[in-house]
């Protein structure tokens, strides 16, 4: 049995990677191709693969359906606030679970592990009713609150605290008379910075891309997020593919920009998490 992995050697290796890269990038490019063409481009044979010159007109059509800046602002507020608060609650709880000695630590963490298996999406309709009881339907707060805490985040940050924060540090801090919050904030938090950053990115991404919950809890276009806006474009009353795909691209643009800026940390973060997780 003499099978070797010779295909893993160059140049076939680069050939394969280039194909994979094209598959990864093509849909983004094609969003722009169709988004800049006229309506017939979507169904031409052979397919249209060169951008057209209709972008301004299509862009105008998109802006007529919703206010891009409102949508960006909403998505940004929701994603940023959710990410920051979730990182805060997760690092705080993770720190307590990993480093503080108190009765019931183990048991409470066991409870958290059970929570990890609960698919929260199932509670979406009562969550809606709860929001309506407290008068938060159709507000950005309703989009943020359910995601301020995350079971996964607590699990993740506990791991990070366990492997990055030496217990002696806690004791020495306590002996120095620092409060536990100060120990958490100025001693522990800096040591888990990169894990916290990954959680921040992931939460931001997840919040930006969330669809099911914003779809039912937002009602007026003033509170639409990027995903709801795209789904609005994709409706029967709008026969225009260029505006649908162009709009999808527009709504993804901030994330694309964010990714390009943070690509290195993002990749490192994903891989970093994999080893510890």
């Amino acid at each position: 049995m003499k099978i070797s992995f010779s295909w893993l050697k160059q140049p076939s290796l680069y050939g394969m990677l280039i194909i994979v890269a094209l598959l990864s990038l093509f849909p983004f490019y094609w969003m722009y191709v169709i988004g800049s063409s006229d309506n017939s481009a979507i169904a031409t044979i052979p397919p249209t693969i060169v951008p057209g010159n209709n972008w301004p007109a299509n862009f105008a059509q998109i802006t007529e359906m919703f206010n891009i800046w409102t949508v960006y602002r909403n998505s940004f507020i929701v994603a940023a606030v959710t990410a920051i608060l979730q990182v805060f609650t997760s690092t705080l709880a993770g720190f307590a679970f990993a480093k503080l000695r108190f009765r019931g630590n183990q048991a409470l963490f066991g409870v958290v592990m059970v929570f990890l298996m609960i698919p929260l999406q199932l509670g979406i309709i009562p969550l809606y009713l709860l929001m309506s009881k407290i008068g938060l339907v159709d507000t950005l707060a309703a989009l943020i609150l359910p995601y301020v805490v995350s079971v996964f985040g607590v699990f993740w940050m506990r791991q990070a605290m366990l492997s990055n924060v030496p217990s002696e540090l806690i004791d020495s801090g306590a002996v120095d008379g620092a409060g536990f919050f100060r120990i958490y904030w100025s001693l522990a938090l800096p040591l888990v910075r990169s894990s916290a950053f990954v959680l921040l990115l992931f939460t931001f991404l997840t919040a930006w891309n969330d669809f099911a919950w914003p779809l039912i809890i937002t009602q007026t276009p003033d509170n639409f997020t990027a995903q709801v806006a795209v789904s609005q474009l994709n409706s029967a009353n709008n026969p225009s593919y260029p505006s649908i795909l162009g709009g999808s691209l527009l709504m993804a643009l901030p994330l694309i920009a964010m990714f390009i800026v943070t690509a290195k940390q993002f990749v490192a973060g994903v891989m970093d998490g994999a080893v510890k997780g």
């Binding site: 809606y128 009713l129 929001m131 309506s132 009881k133 008068g135 339907v137 159709d138 779809l215 039912i216 937002t218 009602q219 007026t220 276009p221 639409f224 709801v228 789904s231 609005q232 409706s235 029967a236 009353n237």
Partner: peptide
């Protein structure tokens, strides 16, 4: 908003008094 979304939105708005 889109046709179904508008009516579901109205429904939920009435349920919540908003």
């Amino acid at each position: 908003s889109e046709y179904n979304k508008h009516h579901e939105g109205l429904l939920t708005a009435l349920a919540s008094g908003k």
